[in-house]
Design a protein around this nucleic acid. Sequence first.
RNA 1: GGCGCCGUACCCAAGUGGUAAGGGAGAGGUCUGCAAAACCUUUAUUCAGCGGUUCGAAUCCGCUCGGCGCCUCCA
Length: 463
Amino acid sequence: MRIFNTLTGQEEEFQPFQNHHVRMYTCGPTVYNFAHIGNFRTFVCQDLLRRWLLYRGYRLTHVMNVTDVDDKTITNAKAAGLSLKDYTTRYADAFFEDCRHLRLQQPEVIPYATDHIEEMVQLVEKLMEKNLAYRQNGSIYYRISAFTNYGRLSRLDPSQLQIGHSIEADEYSKDNPRDFVLWKAPKDGEPYWETRIGPGRPGWHLECSAMSMKYLGETFDLHCGGVDLIFPHHENEIAQSEGATGRTFVKYWFHSEHLLVNGERMAKSKGNFYTLRDLLEKGFDSIAIRYLLLSTHYQKPLNFTLEGVGQATGALQTLKNFLLLARTCRQAPSDNPRVVDIAEHRLRQFESAMDDNLNISAALAAVYDARYDLNAIAESQGLSSADREKVLLLFQKFNSLLDVLDFEADVITDAEVLQLIEERGAARRNHDFMRADEIRAQLLQRGIALEDTRDGVRWKRTR
RNA sequence: GGCGCCGUACCCAAGUGGUAAGGGAGAGGUCUGCAAAACCUUUAUUCAGCGGUUCGAAUCCGCUCGGCGCCUCCA
């Protein structure tokens, strides 16, 4: 498979260091509030990547950190009158609940920053020994002028960087304003840790270097995040890690583009700021949102609109209707050789699209083409048992990547509903269409849609 | 000021030199007691605009217009 590597600015053949084992790190959430839909676009892209690696048979060790100490978590916890731990636990729980709604697979390891202070201290000690870090007013800074590769990932020339406007008071004492903080001196009323490098708390970049190397080794295959993390976060991670170890930190850098809402950057002030919760409360389906978020290539901006969620819902419905037909269509007396041909052809099309830098649009086209081809057969001739299995297996393969379809047999157990379906059938046979339509409308209100086919009545849930 | 991305139908979107995939929505039709589903037909002589290279350009080059991102809070 080929994948775009931010480090080289090119698409490259993916070849992990250890042949069959991929080690991957993703920058996880900072748990200071509910994650928004833009955050989840990134996590859905990473979910697609991880699922494709698994599909291709790699053993995967995926680490995603949780940042549970930083300026925002501290400020918000204080405002909420909670301890830092109580506050961040609340939002970490909410985050993982949202992840389940979006069917994001759990990474193998989910380390929390506050559980890894010792590893971070060790990393700072190494950087101090190598004279890549210096102490200033109780804080410790990274000396970027001592790291020659600084700016390679982001293609920024350190000497060209403008100095930001929001430099904190204590940072005026840095040797170079562009140096970044590794360890922050304690402030009044803020949490801090007593450590060998002095009291304080970690800077933002430090945790990712310390935790990724702890769980994946000093050199690993993939590091993921949103494009906004390229600079400074990932640039600084490289400086910290490679500065400390002298070895290549990461082989492939995977960055996903941002999500816009109605063509604009999402911002609370613009009134276009959505959390997943907002959308679910408005009655949108979390699976349709997953579908929408995964259906645009990760390197392209995704313009999120409520109309788009509606379109995604419609597209999913087409696939669900097909699966219903595939399960319930007439039993054919013998196998149809075209079924296996179609399945193999469309699967190949799907796989080569995904191998091509996760070309999800082309992969989805293969899914819909398969649906179209197989639908015609199921509709006109029915399917033999073996062919039915093949069709369902094909879509299960597609779904191992997409995870937007359900395959468990859905049965109605409610005796009253079954009774009504029965009664409607009798009414239709007696040409009492008033009564039949009345029952159909009644069931629709309960979320069950009835469809009359030449092979009898068929039903599906509408919610 | 520096670096980078994007512009394909009503909407989303693939395609990076060989004559415009796929999805949604709309219109007409077939089937149906009516629906629904499905199927058929239909919606870009054209890819922001203008020039150039080429037998051939949405694809390559140049310019123009429009939108977006990063440059120490950020997914």
